[in-house]
Write a protein that binds this DNA or RNA. Sequence first.
RNA 1: GGCCCGUUGGUGAAGUGGUUGAACACACAUGCCUUUCACGCAUGCAUUCAUGGGUUCAAAUCCCGUACGGGUCACCA
Length: 548
Amino acid sequence: MTREEYANMLLPNVLHDRKYYEEKYQKRNLKPGAMVTRIAPSPTGFVHIGTLYQAIVANKLAKQSGGVCFLRIEDTDQKRLVENGIEQILEAVKAYQIPFDEYPIDMEREVGAYGPYIQSKRADIYQAFAKDLIIKDLAYPSFLTEEEKKEMTEKQQKRKQRIGYYGIWASKERALTMEEVKEKVEAGIPYVIRLKSKGSFDNKIVIEDCIKGKIEFPENDMDHVLLKSDGIPTYHFAHAVDDTLMGTTHVTRGDEWVSSLPLHIELFHALGFEPPKYAHLATIQKEEDGKKRKISKRKDPEANVRFYSEKGIPVEAVKIYLMTLANSNFEEWFLANPDSDMDEFELHFENMSTSGALFDMEKLLNISRNYLSRISAEEFYNQILQWAETYSKDFIEDLKTYKDIIIATLNIERNVAKPRKDYGMYSEIESNIKYMYHFENPEYEWQRITDKKEIVEILTTYIENYYDSSDTEEVWFNKMKEMCDKLGYASNMKEYKKNPDNYKGNVADVSTVLRVALTGRSRTPNLYDIMKIIGQEEITRRIALLKN
RNA sequence: GGCCCGUUGGUGAAGUGGUUGAACACACAUGCCUUUCACGCAUGCAUUCAUGGGUUCAAAUCCCGUACGGGUCACCA
């Protein structure tokens, strides 16, 4: 039996050889320095915030260098596949407006000349390369059962040896002759294809990571699985094949991959490929009981990108926040160039953190408030509406019915040099502004003045003697002061502070009574503007509510 | 346990041997301004860069040990 026949027996249904694929996927024609990056998520459930983070970084690096960024779906683990997993990824990418150059559109269609971009459709490619490794005696079949493996691990633990399939542990199967293998195959025993590692644990290799710098490792000496028994590749093998064929220049991925670097380097060499450059991004962490840990899908709702959509944190704010995590100098740049597009900022590996940052909701919300304070009221309204259509159906009717009032409300103190920062999430808008168009049985948040009689007196005096809907803000407020003097409250804050005992209170207290009477709340935007929006009739009605 | 990596205020961090008396931002505190809140302004918040030792005229920055934290050791990615 020749080695070719042997390889054919092990992988009988391969359509093409590796040469075919190497010719099919030509080198990309890009200018020097252009980076080809990618994200390669697996569709195992919801989209992780870390995946979004990697997507933003990978995209930025490609775009700013005139390169290409693509999306590849890693669905090689049949067991972990989740229904709609791919759709969820595609949705998130769309929601966050990540501009990929090459990507699957759905299970059938795709954009880009280096596909398929869904790994499960690339089985023949991987097998072609695996077959080549078998022919070159760089890979071999392994019939090891779960039980045998477990037994081996136990022995290794008992002897305090390194755990894994390597050296003497692999020697038995490595030594199998082609005839012995043939017998097992014909007997129907399942097998995987393993790498025949040439490395030695005693040799050191140094790998230069774009973010972490030089990292020294022992060489890989493990005979890792390349092809599982179903003929589907493991992550490692798919990585080497795909990122070569797809022309990836820089592999940006989470730093949980650092420790597989020696394997990956060996794989590239075994395949006769040039390894790409690696950039291992620090993972986003979360603090629990005083300890840091990787933000977790299971425990942390904020690990899921949907969380932000549901809460109504603007896409833009999340992106800005993730950019500040990627390069902390982004924040300074953004502060200095508030009107610039994020794309004008240049991301650099040198400025990326080597250790994981804690996720900071406060900071995200601050960024969000800043962002929402800077857009126009109309734009804001449209964003809220869009959000409500998916996440708050009940709110839509009010949004549409009271569109003018809502926009006017959002517009209070907005078009000024330093706008208010009242809102951080779309989900808090409704409860914050509902009093503007709906005011029945309010809960009044009275502050300093709580006596009902006093409140009624102030309001009655105001509506009967001072209120005039045509007043300018200045006149309006001067009248407030006048009324204060008349009712025994201080109209001048400085005077009041000098002799607080001479007065029943001050103009702030009186204003607050009016504010609470009209809105129910002690904190609102500018009261004059609110009164203009709700109008005379409604003001009279709301004050009358208290007289009874 | 083996192998990697990391450790600068409550948080993100700047810092690459000497203009650092450790930037900037978030948070927090106080005061001012003020019709509330917010905004804004001012001030405060690490006598010190996990820790012990070493190199040096000089160290957060370089070296070694220790502690702590993280990652990884699958036919998962």
